[in-house]
Design a protein around this nucleic acid. Structure first.
Lengths: 141, 141
DNA sequence: ACGAAATAATTAGCATTGCTAAGGAACGGT
DNA sequence: ACCGTTCCTTAGCAATGCTAATTATTTCGT
């Protein structure tokens, strides 16, 4: 496989992903959560419970920034923050039922829109996309 | 094709894209531009020249927000802003050479990292990924 | 056991980014 | 010439990003 072909695939995959998420992000306006809060909540629901440091690292922001975002999520009843008994410096952040529901509703809106787009593909094309997706999943995890 | 399979593909494609861009975004720290500025610059380079309203719409922010981001890019010499002669209410935003260079360097860093990941795939897998990508491109544009 | 160093989170203070409301300038139709 | 609309900017506020400093706790070395 030539060096250039790999770069070509990488470039196109990069911009297709940007376009895809840009499109789906429009659905988030129906949630009345800001983008940073929604993104943090989504990590807490999927990867949580976790510490503040882990959450900040995942979201690629500094701990003080995340600390205030968590404040807001706790205020909104979407998340709980507890001191860990085994290490009282650390904090355990977990989603509440309301948090899970809100986040899943948001993700479902996005997924529904995407699934709608995919309907224009033929069955064989869906299968081909599925095979490509398995490879993408292998590469991104 | 079953309803559920489409949803499954959509869900997985959604999260794979998020994971992918989250990973690649780490490379942006080497640029000393903030995320909103880098993203706006990238639109100006790729889709420009364009008006402020078009840019705000693309970036899904309000015009006042984008107006200030453009201020900063103009200050940094990455972008020019000119009144359109044919419609003097409107503004034509274009990248300077320095803007193009900066943005391409950033994108190349991201693409290089992604291409590196793809190297773990066999040639036949790269081709399968390429076929899936063509379908994704059709769906996202 | 004890003090020093390290670690986790928060608080304080600032720049940037997001918004809405309001204003100025230019265009378009009548 | 005027009125309404459109495009952008300015003003002012809340949220988000940062670094520096503080507090609380744990860990390490002696």
């Amino acid at each position: 496989m030539g060096e250039g072909e790999l770069r070509d695939i990488a470039t196109r995959l990069h911009s297709a992903s940007i376009r895809l998420l840009r499109t789906l992000r429009r659905e988030d306006k129906q949630t009345d959560l800001s983008a940073p809060r929604l993104s943090a909540l989504s990590v807490i629901v999927f990867a949580g419970p976790l510490s503040l440091g882990e959450l900040a690292e995942t979201e690629q922001v500094r701990p003080p920034t995340m600390s205030r975002i968590v404040d807001a999520l706790v205020d909104g009843g979407l998340v709980t923050r507890e001191i860990r008994p085994d290490d009282r410096r650390s904090v355990r952040i977990a989603a509440t039922e309301a948090g899970v529901t809100l986040m899943e509703a948001g993700r479902d809106r996005r997924v529904r829109v995407l699934a709608g787009r995919l309907q224009s593909l033929a069955d064989s094309e869906i299968r081909a996309l599925g095979r490509g997706l398995e490879l993408l999943e292998r590469v991104t995890r």
